[in-house]
Design a protein around this nucleic acid. Sequence first.
DNA 1: GGCGGATCGTTTCAGTTGAAACGTGTTGCC
DNA 2: GGCAACACGTTTCAACTGAAACGATCCGCC
Lengths: 144, 144
Amino acid sequence: MLRLDGFLPYRLNVLAKRISQALARLYEDRFGISIPEWRVLATLGERQPLSSNDIVERTRMDKAKVSRAVSRLAEAGLLDRQPHPEDQRLLRLSFTPEGRALYDRLAPQALEWERRLLEDFSAEDVRALDGLIDRLNDRLDRMR
Amino acid sequence: MLRLDGFLPYRLNVLAKRISQALARLYEDRFGISIPEWRVLATLGERQPLSSNDIVERTRMDKAKVSRAVSRLAEAGLLDRQPHPEDQRLLRLSFTPEGRALYDRLAPQALEWERRLLEDFSAEDVRALDGLIDRLNDRLDRMR
DNA sequence: GGCGGATCGTTTCAGTTGAAACGTGTTGCC
DNA sequence: GGCAACACGTTTCAACTGAAACGATCCGCC
């Protein structure tokens, strides 16, 4: 018989939502940044410049969502949104100095939050968790 | 430096969303049931009757969400929504025969889907995953 | 018994979501 | 070069979400 609180899809969903909400308080309260905006910033923090479509591919976000997040960030003066010189369909997204400064303050706090979340976990536990997540993603890729 | 695709909150969120969406196809395409509605049915499948508030507590769903899911299920003739005889504020929610029949067909398919998702995983892997999820939830309880 | 505060479920409202349509720009092919 | 197909990012639209307000009911206390 099915027990919802032993059902993996339900359990993962509840856990992921709890973690997202707890972490979102960090972005939103201290920095006025939503989760989609944070994802855009974090992606640009790894590599710059990128097009909106690059961000769609890297974050698994919908392109409408990325478009809106980029617009808000650009309006807030955190992102520079230039047309790409060789392909006018593409944007060249990069940090403004303010955006870079905000990212440089936010990213360490996000990592510190993750570290606190995992502070009871051994390195091996974390490896095991990462491996299980990867395997579940692989399984989903193959499930149809 | 922060890499989004190594960041646990992001990874868990993407995974949970992928799993939910894949599974939701089962409920929606074959049964016309949304995820919140499925959660209500699954909760009643464990125990009957329940009040809306019981379902809120067991599923971690918002009470507005439960209210709407219950309304749709009642309109669809799947749920019986009686006032509680001793406390008029409460509902006594239970399956109609149609609701019970639908649940009895849906629940095994959900469990079968979960089994397929996990078919490459040893019993030990599954235990490890469940334990890690529990520990993360415990940690969240204690994080403020 | 009656009044203030709590509880339950519904509704309202503003914000978010993603599928689809759209406008603009580019590429491949004749 | 010109045209059809495709790619990119934005906008539209209907559905969904959850916080807050709400009405109804119940409980504790005098």
